[in-house]
């Protein structure tokens, strides 16, 4: 059993390595375009909702904690707290996706969905003019930033957060599976590899967000009033 569990964990780690490379490519694209268009990236980032982003970071960290606790309670064979932790993790994961959906909708109403992804609302945000009081639905362009460069930020923003959200949706599906099986009483201290392995996946998705949050939401805040 020990060897089987070890093999399962190892297999999941190898899969996570491929996931790291997958997200790594997008982080690389982000790095290159940000170094080319620093002012536009700062301007576009400042338009994101920092409160929703920070709350979502907290939600995801809490869900990672409850996931770790679910693994813990499985290891010591306490089924009721184990089920409770899995339910909490699932609810927190769905909360994250809900907040993300609100953010996406805000971007839609501000015409920030890049290209013609939404044919009826192509990219075309309103821009705040100098000397007039800023409207937070409009974009404030820092010196040197142009709208096509801002659009590039939003391509990357939607690609990265979209892929991350897809991973969250898959994770929520996996958690549902875990929940059904643990209600059926399939896991005990001797056999619980699925809980451990899906836990690893869930923490990985959390780590991706830990990097996405500062890189997407926080990069230009110090330039906002300067």
């Amino acid at each position: 059993m020990e060897q089987q569990r070890e093999a399962g964990t190892l297999g999941m780690w190898v899969f996570l390595v491929t996931e790291i490379m997958f997200f790594g490519g997008m982080f690389l694209a982000y790095t290159l375009y940000r170094s080319m268009f620093p002012a536009a990236f700062a301007s576009a980032s400042n338009h994101l909702d920092i409160t929703l982003g920070a709350v979502n970071t907290g939600v995801l960290i809490l869900s990672s904690f409850t996931m770790a606790m679910a693994v813990y309670f499985t290891q010591i064979g306490k089924r009721r707290p184990q089920i409770l932790c899995l339910v909490l993790t699932l609810i927190l994961g769905l909360t994250f996706l809900g907040i993300k959906a609100v953010e996406y909708h805000d971007k839609y109403t501000d015409r920030l969905i890049p290209g013609h992804l939404i044919p009826s609302a192509p990219f075309g945000p309103a821009v705040n003019e100098h000397g007039k009081p800023p409207d937070h639905h409009k974009l404030t362009l820092l010196t040197g930033a142009t709208l096509p460069q801002v659009e590039m930020f939003y391509w990357i923003y939607f690609a990265m957060t979209g892929m991350h959200a897809l991973h969250m949706i898959i994770g929520a599906g996996l958690l549902t599976f875990l929940l059904i099986y643990s209600i059926k009483g399939r896991f005990d201290p001797e056999y619980h590899s699925p809980v451990e392995v899906i836990g690893l996946y869930w923490h990985f998705v959390d780590i991706v967000w830990i990097f996405l949050f500062p890189l997407l939401y926080l990069l230009g805040r110090h330039l906002e009033h300067g």
């Binding site: 990672s64 904690f65 923490h203 959390d206 780590i207 830990i210 990097f211 500062p214 890189l215």
Partner: peptide, 14 residues
């Protein structure tokens, strides 16, 4: 800060 957070998750949660 992000790297420290990620390291904590990898070492302890994972």
């Amino acid at each position: 800060i992000a790297s420290v957070k990620a390291t904590l998750v990898v070492l302890y949660f994972m």
